[in-house]
């Protein structure tokens, strides 16, 4: 049994396997299928200051080895999370990390402040990369200046571990990564979904109500893996890798490319307990190769 513990800023994870925001609800949706407390952490669904209805249906299109979504950050707002969800989650023996989004600097800051008041939430994931909202979201994540501005503002009000979730829809992700690091981000998670679209040829219509949406699933893995590897060489803060991970082998590849921890996202929809198999698989891999601590794997790629 290897030591699977990893640290992300001041955040300690019992293992490097977490579940990605937007794919795991508030965690409790999955409790019928698995022991969610075995996870290193749960990134709960995107939360904004005010409630959002999200985009109209249809919001989803299946693609080869993946899917497009255009949910648009549907959620009941930060107050609902604080009053109705937090009391249920705070007793869980795993890290609950809230994904925070906004449509303006002020709304990011106000939402982060509300979550900062919750003692059992050890970290937030700042979502500057949602491709499915008109205002805010990815708008902040596609330029180094925009990313810097929002990270700087949130850093001032948020004392615990600040993770910034990056968009792959940029020319050079390392520029954005460096800007977030320079403004005090403790960690980076990457990648969010890739902008894509799907068309119904028979109807001559887009399938998604928003025309474009975010692509995720195994089909994006080579891209996310490449971006983790590039970013690992550009920054010193720990990286949480995600994008198409569906088994332990994928997860180990991300660790080798430079990730300190990983998130399972879309694959939770296919196999709700896949994340637990990933934990067991990583452990078996470590045992097989005589690795005492999983942290030794981070960036251990040999080129």
């Amino acid at each position: 049994m290897a030591d699977l513990r990893v640290n992300i800023g001041k955040l300690s994870l019992k293992n490097p396997v977490t579940t990605a925001s937007g794919t795991f609800g508030y965690g409790t949706e999955y409790a019928d299928f698995m022991d969610i407390e075995r996870l290193g952490g749960i990134f709960v669904k995107g939360t904004t200051l005010e409630a959002r209805e999200g985009n109209p249906y249809p919001r989803m299109a299946e693609t080869p080895a993946g899917m497009l979504n255009a949910v648009g950050l549907q959620n009941k707002g930060a107050e609902y999370f604080t009053d109705a969800i937090y009391p249920k989650l705070k007793e869980l023996d795993t890290n609950i990390i809230v994904n925070v989004s906004g449509s303006s600097i002020d709304s990011y800051v106000a939402c982060a402040e509300k979550i900062a008041a919750l003692g059992k939430i050890p970290a937030i994931e700042l979502n500057i990369s949602c491709p499915n909202v008109k205002k805010g979201g990815m708008a902040f994540g596609v330029s180094a200046a925009g990313a810097a501005e929002v990270v700087r503002a949130v850093r001032k009000v948020y004392p615990r571990t600040l993770i910034v979730k990056l968009s792959p829809n940029v020319t050079d992700i390392t520029e954005i990564a460096k800007a977030a690091e320079a403004e005090g981000a403790d960690s980076l998670s990457l990648i969010n979904t890739l902008l894509g679209m799907a068309i119904d040829a028979g109807k001559r219509k887009p399938i998604l109500s928003t025309v474009t949406g975010g692509l995720s699933g195994p089909c994006v893995k080579p891209i996310s893996l490449r971006m983790v590897w590039q970013t690992y060489q550009a920054v010193k803060i720990p990286i949480i890798g995600l994008g198409g991970i569906s088994n332990w082998r994928d997860a180990v590849e991300f660790l080798l490319a430079g990730a300190a921890a990983i998130q399972i996202g879309t694959y939770n929809f296919i196999d709700p307990s896949a994340s637990l198999d990933v934990i067991d698989g990583i452990n078996a891999y470590c045992d097989e190769y005589g690795i005492k601590s999983v942290s030794e794997l981070s960036g251990a790629l040999e080129i």
């Binding site: 937007g22 794919t23 795991f24 609800g25 949706e29 999955y30 019928d32 299928f33 669904k45 209805e53 999200g54 109209p56 249906y57 249809p58 919001r59 989803m60 299109a61 899917m67 979504n69 949910v71 549907q74 879309t266 939770n268 929809f269 709700p272």
Partner: peptide, 22 residues
């Protein structure tokens, strides 16, 4: 039978607009 991904209320893809919202 709205198209859905997860089937367990996590992905929010299959929403119907109702008197209580999506």
């Amino acid at each position: 039978e709205n198209t859905m991904a997860c089937g367990i209320g996590a992905c929010l893809c299959c929403v119907e607009n109702t008197t209580q919202g999506h």
